[in-house]
Amino acid sequence: MARVVVDVVMKPEILDPQGQAILGALGRLGIEGVRGVRQGKHFELDVDESVSEETLHRLADTLLANPVIEDFSIHR
């Protein structure tokens, strides 16, 4: 068994309204110097060693992320 992490974030050119809301809240906390926030998703998968890189890429590309609007990275 191995822990695989898949991180998904909106593509840079796609507006991220949630990130903007967080950025606004940081201002109200009195924190300065944060110029931008992009919110994403973090998946932790427990997978058998037999699961191939290709399979992991396919599950990220078809279900965990929507490649039309999101980029993903896989960390095994």
Partner: peptide
């Protein structure tokens, strides 16, 4: 339909949240 790729593009959270 967009998720199924029967139509192009995607729908995201309203810009005004």
């Amino acid at each position: 339909l967009c998720e199924a790729h029967l139509l192009p593009g995607a729908l995201i959270r309203n810009d005004h949240r």
